[in-house]
Structure formats: C-alpha cells, structure tokens
Write a protein that binds this DNA or RNA. Structure first.
Lengths: 195, 195
DNA sequence: CTTAAAACAGACAGGTCTGTATACTTTCGG
DNA sequence: CCGAAAGTATACAGACCTGTCTGTTTTAAG
C-alpha cells in the first residue's frame, strides 16, 4: 500500500513551487527550464521525469496555483467575515488584500491565456475553466448577500467589475481599483433591494 | 525642403504593420525578428536601421496601434451615433464591434504590459499611459451623456466594467461581455438621473 | 543487506533568438 | 551623371532554448 517513495516527491514539489514563483513574476515564456532547475536545485532529469514537457509543467503550475490561491482567498475572506463584514464586503476586502500582496502582478490565468496566445493550449483551456469556477464562487457569495434572484441578474456585471479591477490594479500599480469595484457593486445591490 | 527620400519610408511602414499584426496575434515575445522581416519582405538591416532594437520596435508598434485603433474606434462610434444612439450607447456598440472583429485577442496594451512583465520597459510605460488616455476619453463620453457631475463619480467604475469586458471577451471568446457592461453602465446612469 | 526507484550531475544536440558585419543594388536630388 | 541615402542579401557571433542521453549517488522498502 505504502507509496514507493516519499510523500509526493519533494523534488517535484520544489519544481512546481519554484516554477510558480518565476512564471508568475516574469511570465511563462520569459522563464526557461534551466532557470527553474537551478533555483529549485534539482537535476534537469528530475524535472523531465515528472513533467514530459514545459507545457505540462505550465499546466501543473496553474492547477497548483488555483488550489493555493483558492484557499488563501477563502482564509482572507473568512477573516473579514469574522470581523463583521457580509460575504460580499469580505470578498472585496480579500481582493484588496490580494492586490496589496507583495509581488502582485495580476491574475496568473489571464496572464497565461495572454502569453500562451493559442486558445488550444491546455494552459489556456484550464485558465478559461478557472474563470468559470471563479465566477461560480462569486455567484454564491452574491447569493448569500443579495439572494438568489438578485445574484442571477447581477453576477455577470459584478464579475466584470472584478476582472476590470484586477487588470486595472496591475496597470495603475495600485489597489484602489478594489475600492471602486466594491463601492459600485454594493451601491448597485443596495439599489436593487430598494425596489 | 523636400524629404531626402520617399514619404516616410515604405520599408519602415511595412515593418511596423507586419510587426503589429504578428505581435498582436501571437505576442511580442513569441514573435522573432526573423519572422517579421520575412513577412514584411525587408532586409534585416533595414529593420535595424529604423529601430535600434526589438524593444524600440515594440514601442513603435504600440504607438502606431494607439493611433490606428483610436481613429477606428471613433469611426465605429460615429456610425452608431449617426444611427441615433447617444454617445455612451455608441461607445458600447463600438466596443462590441471591436470584440467581434476578426482575430480579436484583447487589448494589446494590457497584453504588452503582461508579456513584458517589467514595469520599467518603455512598452509597459506607454501602455499604462495609454490606459490613462483611454479612460480620459471615456470620461468625456460619459460627460456628454450624463453630465460632468455624474461623469466624475461614475467614470472609474464604468472603466472597470469596460476593462473587465475586454478581458472576459478574450477568455470566453464571445462579445457578450460588451452587452453586460453596457446594460450595467446604462442602468447605473439611469438610476443616478432619477435621484 | 539487497535492490530498485528516485534524484543528481553534466554534457550535448539541434534549434532559435537578437544583433552585427560586409558587400551589393536601387533610387533620386542636385 | 555623380554620389549619398535607402534598401537588399547573407553570413555569422554568441547566447539561450527545450529536450535527450549517459552515468553516478542517494534513499528507503523488503
């Protein structure tokens, strides 16, 4: 039963974490294999034993990133929710935390989709599906704050506000866009409730 | 007085136009110099006589793109305005035209900012300034539709809607986001006018 | 202790990249 | 018609890229 080796390979984990850091901060095309193995301190063959090609590594990094940032975002949100915010307010507060986190350079999935250019690349496809999942999570949050009816009609527009805020935060190198998006979304929901 | 040569160099123009097409569709890092000179049918030295380095060419392409798409966007808008739309409606209709134009792959300035990664790159700096100019134009359009007061408070949020729509149109490979952004922006303005 | 998987180390093949150098050809103003 | 400017053609340097190959060392299960 027991695995033939360690937990899930320390070398593999080191490769994925190093690649994530480098790919995110400099781009998937700008960072080469040699750089990754040097900074992860692994042999080239260790990388190619775990990942048949760089494209496979890119995909693995995106999967890892979704898991890691999914749980990190949830933790941020819960902290704000515990401090008395409703779910949607907590979401935007967490968004701002993210924008202000060191080395922030936007959404890795948008960036990957842009850099890979080819929509058929597995990394592109995964990024597109990630956005679907992200918007689904957002829909649930809006449901908890404004009810199912309101969520159905307002989620698409609020999703645009969020995506726009991410991109704008990168361009302006400022987290201010998170506040603008929050105010607009909350004002809109408040108005809908009045009716 | 007369120029020492042609108008403004046909070879140079061919280089810029070819580079724009390739950079936009495949990315500035993915497309090499050799590819550009081959498709532009110029000698390598012609390129390097006009542009000291690839980075300079990238900047020149971004400048060219801003001019070209600025006037193209205006033309689209005017066509819709002539058909009876107010300025902001015409803006979103033009946005949709853009999303549906063949080979659409998002905003080249966002893409360049993502691909170049380095914020100090001249291409990055120009892209950031382009967004400032773009948002200024948007502010003027909103002013014409909703008045100066309303424009001041609503432009930042509507700008997020627009940026979000651009990114989402790429991810979903659909122009639907333009409609979502338009409906949200118009509803918001209508509500502000009621008060 | 044996053994096989896993990781390490490093050379290398074959291609691509940016940028330079050299020599030839075309164009056109004066 | 001369000469400078602009463009062409091509070879090449040197770096970097992905991926392969060969061989050694470490690790841990049985």
């Amino acid at each position: 039963m027991s695995k033939t080796r360690a937990k899930s390979s320390e070398a593999r984990q080191r490769i994925v974490e190093t690649a994530e850091r480098l790919f995110y901060s400099e781009g998937v095309r700008a960072v080469g294999i040699d750089r990754i193995i040097a900074e992860a301190a692994v042999a080239k063959m260790s990388l190619y034993n775990h990942f048949p090609s760089k494209d496979d590594l890119i995909l693995a990094v995106l999967q890892y990133r979704e898991e890691k940032y999914g749980s990190m975002f949830m933790k941020w949100m819960e902290r704000h929710a515990a401090a008395g915010m409703d779910r949607l307010e907590a979401f935007f507060a967490a968004l701002k935390n993210w924008f202000e986190s060191p080395g922030f350079r936007g959404c890795m999935f948008i960036n990957a989709r842009v850099e890979l250019a080819d929509a058929r690349h597995e990394g592109s496809k995964f990024s597109v599906r990630h956005k679907e999942r992200f918007h689904e999570m957002l829909a649930q949050i809006i449901t908890q704050t404004a009810g199912e009816e309101a969520a159905k009609t307002m989620t698409p527009a609020i999703a645009l506000l969020v995506e726009g805020a991410i991109v704008t935060a990168v361009m302006q190198q400022s987290s201010q866009a998170a506040d603008v998006a929050r105010d607009a979304a909350l004002a809109w929901i408040a108005q809908a409730k009045e009716k």
